[in-house]
Nucleic acid binder design. Structure first.
Length: 509
RNA sequence: GGCCCGUUCGUCCAGCGGUUAGGACGCCAGAUUUUCAUUCUGGAAACAGGGGUUCGAUUCCCCUACGGGCUGCCA
């Protein structure tokens, strides 16, 4: 069914629903990406919903961080806080009254009940019995409205005793639902506990808020991480209690640590030496600061391309995709079932590829920021030249600068091993002469002039070029030497050659 | 412990009853290059184990093992 006015498919509405408890994890980005691709492909709607029902774990700034991250990747929501939409508010903390109402409805219908057990009491039960579950087998022994008379309950409620509302799960049934990725999944209700749906502070838990919002926002497909698979049975029961049709479910495989032991977590970045967040995260607590992919020199399209292939396959040999191409070929059916380890080497390879594909202009703009950060004085047109020479020999943006400081300063050290191998004092004079040739050449004639000198003097390219290269850059690694000298400046190159002769002579003594 | 989900090269993915089990990253070797990188060529490298079903199982079923997730008044 198409809405003629918006051109959107009203049957397809998906949401990305992160909780603002800190920076958005890279796994969350992938979930957002899959939701976005599916929505775009179906000409549906991509919704951002902020699940901020936990007041204790709420982190100021996290919501903005999430939005900034999505924008960096170009995954812009159609509806959400700050994005408009007819189904708001899109922050759960602003929907408290709605949840209240529905929770009460369940209580009145006997599908939920008040429970007065304190967190301390419950903790003690779990301590003495780790398998303790608040369910049909136990609830008649606990402090809740199922055991109390109406008057008792009323009195407790009125004396403002803290309480929660729990979902009443009937035992000896089974719940089955279809998962688009995993097929049919079944749970016995004997395994399910009476989940808290409304907390002591009056806020709903995820379980309640999520199904009410998904229903009210007319979400058609719930695409989320596998960590939610276990609680989906509870959700299906609630849909049933309310008399609503559940959306379709698709539970994504998790992104695992490189070691494969557990899902990738925020501390793994520091542990394994790569970012796990899109953007850097600042915080007063030094333990809670993280560098992002962006600041570490990654391109958003590279990260996205890497990410989309972690758990999904296009079923073709093609592996480089633009967002638009992904929208065309994405298919939930091709999402993989098993967890995928995070492999930073593959990400670096994608990044290298996208850097090479980038225009020098785009790269130069990014390099200006890098240079400012490093305190290097330069300008965009010079960086254009650096980008042209360096882009196919780096994996990250910043490396075009950090591994090529000789574009900005004379070398501070020389590759000694190579000098000892190649340099003989009688070559010093030749180097000085070549320096003069360099200094008196034009960029266009430079290569010709230097090569002419080398052949006229019956020298060998393989003997002279390394010494020249080290004179200019200090290292044996780098772009075409003549182009490098042209960019650095021919007069500057002459100076560097000159001072290298002195240094070389000292080194071989 | 219980429940749920999973298991093809080191890693990410193809394969959907009969294939020399394919590609990519990484690794190794070679070609090109003044070096590095890019590019190109080649190479090593996998169906967790055991039972079935079948003429025939990597493919279907069961068990075991291993891995992951959940088991909170967190999402």
């Amino acid at each position: 069914m198409k809405d003629e006015r918006s051109g959107q498919n009203r049957n397809c509405r998906v949401r990305f629903a992160p909780s603002p408890t800190g920076p958005l994890h890279i796994g969350g980005v992938r979930t957002a990406l899959y939701n976005y691709l599916f929505a775009r492909q179906q000409q549906g709607t991509f919704i951002l919903r902020i699940e901020d029902t936990d007041q204790v774990r709420y982190v100021p700034g996290a919501e903005q961080y999430i939005i900034n991250s999505l924008q960096w990747f170009g995954l812009v929501p159609d509806e959400g806080p700050g994005f408009g939409g007819a189904y708001g508010p899109y922050r759960q903390s602003e929907r408290k009254e709605i949840y209240d109402q529905y929770a009460m409805k369940l209580v009145h219908e006997g599908k939920a009940y008040y429970a007065f057990d304190t967190p301390d009491e419950l903790e003690k039960y779990r301590e003495s019995d780790p398998t303790f579950k608040y369910d049909a087998s136990n609830r008649m022994k606990l402090r809740n409205s199922l055991n109390f008379t109406e008057a008792q309950t009323k009195q407790l409620l009125e004396s403002s005793t803290e309480y929660v509302i729990r979902l009443k799960i009937d035992p000896k049934n089974s719940v089955t639902f279809q998962d688009r990725i995993r097929g049919e999944v079944t749970f016995s209700t004997d395994e399910l506990d009476d989940k808290v749906i409304l907390k002591g502070d009056g806020m709903p838990t995820y379980h309640l808020a999520n199904i009410i919002d998904d229903h009210l926002m007319e979400i058609s497909h719930v695409i989320r991480g596998e960590e939610w698979l276990s609680s989906t049975a509870h959700h299906v029961i609630m849909y049933d209690y309310f008399g609503w049709n559940p959306p379709e479910f698709a539970h994504l495989p998790l992104i695992l640590k490189p070691s494969g032991k557990g899902k990738l977590s925020k501390r793994d970045g520091a542990k394994f030496g790569f970012p796990v967040f899109p953007l850097s995260w600042e915080s007063g607590d030094p333990e809670d600061r993280f560098t992002g992919f962006k600041e570490d020199g990654y391109l958003p399209e590279a990260v996205l391309n890497f990410l989309v292939l972690l758990g999904w396959s296009p079923h073709s040999e093609k592996e480089m995709f633009t967002l638009d191409e992904l929208i065309q070929v994405f298919d939930i059916e091709n999402i993989v079932k098993s967890g995928a380890r995070f492999d930073i080497d593959k990400a670096l390879w994608f990044n290298q590829h996208y850097i090479i594909q980038s225009s020098n202009e785009d790269l130069a703009k990014k390099l200006i920021i890098t240079c400012e950060k490093l305190g290097i004085q330069t300008n965009e047109s010079y960086l254009l030249g650096v980008a042209a020479l360096m882009k196919e020999r780096v994996h990250k943006i910043d490396e075009m600068i950090t591994s090529a400081m000789y574009f900005f300063l004379p070398p501070t050290s020389y590759d000694e091993g190579m000098i000892k191998k190649k340099y003989k004092s009688e070559l010093g004079q030749h180097l000085e002469e070549i320096g003069k040739v360099v200094g008196s050449s034009e960029s266009s004639s430079l290569e010709h002039n230097v090569k002419s000198y080398i052949s006229e003097q019956s020298l060998k390219m393989g003997d002279i070029m390394p010494l020249l290269r080290i004179a200019i850059s200090g290292t044996m690694q780098g772009p075409d030497l003549f182009e490098t000298m042209s960019l650095v400046g021919l007069e500057e190159s002459r100076r560097r050659i000159s001072s290298s002769v002195e240094a070389y002579n000292k080194l071989i003594q």
